[in-house]
Amino acid sequence: MTPVLVVAVTVTAVLLALAGVASTLARRRIGLLHLGGAALLEALLLVQAVLAVVLLARGERPADTPTFLGYLAGIVLLPVAGVLWARTEPTRWAGTVLAVAAGAVGVMVWRLQQLWEATGG
């Protein structure tokens, strides 16, 4: 759980959300840009998940471990779910669906960081 990674995830998520909203406003479906952005976001989240699991395995424990694990698993699934859904959505609203998923990631990553820093005894 490094702040650099959290910021990188946030920036990517925000850009992806903006791209999604932009495609809806432009009345277009999602394109390669969105898929690439989602792939980058997912890659960052996977790095973060691996890092967190390594730290957990070394014995570091956030105060609320079950919640932390729930967020860690949920956040990794979100971009995948967003892309799968957006690709089956044949209207310009596909971008908005992706934007919602990206926005949720952007919020959840900070909650995740918060949970991690609240280290329990």
Partner: peptide
């Protein structure tokens, strides 16, 4: 089923997930 309602369903889906996960953790721990 399609169109702008999708966005609404997406947000609802996120909340169903968030609230559900929270409830499970709270109730079980």
């Amino acid at each position: 089923a399609g169109g702008p309602g999708r966005a609404l369903v997406a947000v609802y889906g996120v909340f169903a997930l968030a609230a559900g996960a929270r409830a499970v953790v709270q109730l079980s721990t």
